[in-house]
Design a protein around this nucleic acid. Structure first.
Lengths: 209, 209
DNA sequence: TTTTGGTTTAACCGTATGGTTAAAGTATTT
DNA sequence: AAATACTTTAACCATACGGTTAAACCAAAA
């Protein structure tokens, strides 16, 4: 994953890139400043010179990564009013996004399990950058219910269900791949099958009575 | 959570109990041997005397905890042949179990994200203790499909969906509780609502065509 | 050319940590 | 009671780690 976007000096960029690689692989506690420095090919003191502390460096990496991920996610919410097409498109791009970012998924889950302490700051950053708009997703659901296009589900719970169905295989990836021997969650075959199974389950599950 | 079951000496039991508390709370890397010793009220050297190393101690805690969790889970698979009742019962007991073991969920997720390296050893332990039997869950699904009680879903994917729908709120708990301000995932109200939403979604979703 | 200010390096520091050890304590056996 | 084997303790050890510092380096300003 490329993080070099807007960071001024070459050194700063190399640090952030190396820190990203290491933090995604080993987590906050598992990562070592020396290892990051080595990977960046610079002196360890530079890490502190540019980012002050391990915590601050981690926070930077976290914010950049999460921003990229959520930006991709929000941009993937399609505009169509057709419920089936909407679901199909969302499931498709959300799962592709997770399949392509194994390290990032692990990173986010780690952070969440540690209490998601950086989340509020991140949410604020996102809001200030994109401007607040009422969650498009919930609006779409309410509209679809009003139009009788879907059953009267509880919108928030429905979003949790949809995300859960898509995300769970990636969260549980290491166990699943061990238990289901040989199967690869990111393989084209599994992904395709999973996508259609989710779509069918949801589509039948919300069909108006 | 009580872990004292079959451990011989008082000291051994106290160590394991303290280690469980600390590991569930702070994870493998975050936990300190000294802290565990203090909590157990014994000398740090005892940890190594009885469990050799931090890794070995962690492994013991992990196996005991996971065994308790999965035993509870397997015992919760109801015997009924009625699909709706089966689903209702499973969702109910699975979610109650997760709601009551916040620390354990975090612990398992941590371990999974670290690569689930202890899983194979654990699975072997479980098999040797309970004897191998073909997963009851999959058998039930195949039977229900044969009898025309549910749509022709892909069984493994269906299990992943069901588990994902139940587990996701607990996995994402810290974010959800922050984003949905004030809401408590373990509250009776949310749990009840979530259970019925899952059951409805699944039940409608697998209805034969 | 000298000065200045940012950048980089190697060496160093204090501390926390997992782990060890030798000796003391305690129960059990002979 | 003496010997033996197990248990517990306090002190200690080596190392790894995050972080600091003083000096060197280097480019641009004066």
């Amino acid at each position: 994953m490329d993080t070099s976007a807007a960071y001024s000096t070459e050194t700063e960029r190399r640090i952030l890139q190396a820190a990203t690689d290491i933090f995604l692989l080993k987590g906050r506690d598992g990562a070592r400043m020396q290892e990051i420095a080595d990977k960046a090919g610079i002196n360890k003191a530079m890490l502190h010179y540019y980012f002050r502390s391990k915590d601050k460096l981690y926070e930077q990496v976290f914010i950049v990564q999460l921003e990229q991920f959520f930006t991709g996610l929000l941009d993937a919410i399609p505009e169509t009013d057709d419920v089936h097409a909407f679901l199909e498109h969302f499931i498709d791009s959300y799962m592709d996004s997770m399949a392509a970012n194994e390290g990032l998924v692990r990173f986010i889950i780690w952070e969440i399990q540690s209490g998601a302490h950086l989340m509020p700051a991140f949410i604020q950053t996102m809001f200030s950058k994109r401007g607040y708009r009422k969650p498009l997703f919930l609006v779409k659901i309410e509209q679809a219910i009003d139009k009788g296009q879907m059953r009267n589900v509880e919108p928030v719970n429905f979003v949790i269900s949809l995300i859960g169905l898509c995300a769970y295989p990636f969260i549980a990836r290491p166990v699943l791949e061990k238990v289901l021997g040989g199967l690869s969650i990111s393989s084209a075959e599994f992904l395709a099958q999973r996508k259609t199974e989710i779509l069918q389950l949801i589509w039948n599950g919300i069909r108006p009575e």
